[in-house]
Amino acid sequence: MAWLDKAWVDTVLEALTAFFLIAGALITFISSFGMVHLRDFYLRMHGPAKATTLGVGLILVACMLYFVLIERTFHIQLLLVTIFLLITAPISAHLLAKVALHQKLPSDTSTTGAPSELREEDVGQEPDTPHPEDPGSSQRP
């Protein structure tokens, strides 16, 4: 790829790498900061579930650009880490919220609307009502 050897490409890549590094680190830091100063668990959950994923994703992008800069190769493995984080972050956030509801953690006083109580089946026991897509569940003993 001849166009990659131009001098301005290096400058642009360098600037982009530096920008993504700083942006990612800043977002990571802010979300961790939120985890310290927010008032109840449900609020604290928002930082790690979203901002940390984006922050680390940006740092991974910066790393990819950096290796394009010094080696002229794309390391797609880093893309895999980003995708993995993007897929798993909402799942662990959902489970953690469920745990918090199960343990009846108090929510902040300014919260409008109360969480509904968790029932046996939400925790993972067999549901009493059959699942609409599972016709066999009604015959189960």
Binding site: A49, P90, I91, E121
Partner: peptide, 26 residues
Amino acid sequence: LASTISLTPGTISANLRLDGRSLLIH
């Protein structure tokens, strides 16, 4: 849908109820 909700603007899906077909969101 739940994953999307958790990843986008200020919302987190907390609990899914299959019989009532509702999703608790914070």
